[in-house]
């Protein structure tokens, strides 16, 4: 294998990794404000993709308006989930919170299956489906879209968290909920916001990914798992670490598939994760505040 093969592995790793990163980002945003690992995060990614497909089919309004509509719809669904499933169990134990989000993810997946069917669907590429070739390496225009949109989204979120009053409020919640509440931050509203933002981020991930990968009602499970791993690699609670963790996971996977064995690539990714957990549980980019016994 020549150097161009390795470059090709890297490119496909970064493309998939960006999506893992966006999913991981969604996990972190919710975890920071609520302490919940939202197992339904993968479903937001699924919804973004599959709703775009159906809006395009039903309303015939062109690709981009359908996508916008799908992202909007998913964000609203994210809000509804927070209001009707997460808020009622406020203050429950970690394990009950995990179960609720698992319940939500099964519920959302089931509804999608009933209303949109069990089939697999594709979405057109944003701009052309002919690859650009550099030195024997093929890059799809969609990969560039994915990378660009991910970076822009990260920049916007960074601004949001550091420059706006809502962003700062959410960060405050992540440090200390009670104290935040005492200084007049509406914690409930911040939690709602965190769900809105992470469903938005998830939906965008789904929308930009679907042209490359196809979608169906059950793609959310694996994406959720990978996103969760990316969070841990990057350090739970650090949004940008999570995004970086996603890219790293993507590259790791594709290198393993390319160099070692495609059969064991997922096993290898999780193995590295385990080793990392044992050696440095705070993740590569996390602060070392994890408790060990």
């Amino acid at each position: 294998m020549g150097i161009s093969s390795y470059l090709q592995f890297l490119i496909s790793g970064v493309t998939m990794g960006s999506i893992y990163g966006l999913t991981a980002l969604g996990f972190t945003i919710i975890f920071n404000t609520t302490g919940i690992i939202n197992f339904a995060q993968g479903e937001f990614v699924m919804l973004g993709g599959i709703l775009s497909v159906f809006f395009l089919k039903w309303f015939d309004i062109g690709l981009f308006p359908s996508i916008l509509l799908a992202v909007l719809a998913t964000t609203i669904i994210g809000g509804v989930i927070e209001r009707f499933a997460i808020r009622p169990v406020k203050g429950a134990s970690v394990i009950n919170l995990i179960i609720v989000t698992i319940g939500v993810s099964i519920f959302v997946r089931g509804l999608t299956m009933i209303f949109l069917g069990k089939d697999t669907f594709s979405l057109p590429h944003f701009s052309g489906n002919l690859p650009l070739t550099f030195a024997g390496v093929a890059v799809m225009p969609q990969s560039i879209w994915i990378l660009a949109i991910t970076l822009v989204l990260l920049a916007i979120l960074r601004l949001f968290f550091t420059r706006t009053i809502y962003g700062k409020g959410m960060l405050a919640c992540s440090y200390n909920r009670k104290a935040s509440s005492l200084v007049g931050i509406g914690v409930d509203r911040m939690v709602l916001f965190s769900f809105l933002i992470s469903s938005l981020v998830g939906a965008i991930g789904g929308v930009i990914l679907t042209p490359v990968t196809l979608t169906s009602y059950d793609v959310g499970i694996m994406l959720g798992l990978k996103g969760f791993s990316a969070c841990i690699i990057g350090g739970l609670g650090n949004p940008f670490g999570a995004a970086a963790g996603g890219v790293l996971l993507g590259i790791l996977e594709s290198l393993c598939a390319g160099v070692i064995s495609s059969a064991y690539k997922d096993a290898f990714a999780f193995f590295v994760l385990l080793v990392l957990l044992f050696v440095k549980p705070s993740g590569l980019f996390g602060q070392a505040k994890i408790e060990r016994v």
């Binding site: 294998m1 093969s5 090709q8 998939m16 990968t213 793609v219 499970i221 594709s254 495609s262």
Partner: peptide, 10 residues
């Protein structure tokens, strides 16, 4: 459920 086979094809 894999979504990308470029690596194997490469």
């Amino acid at each position: 459920k894999d979504t990308d086979m470029t690596v194997q094809l490469t």
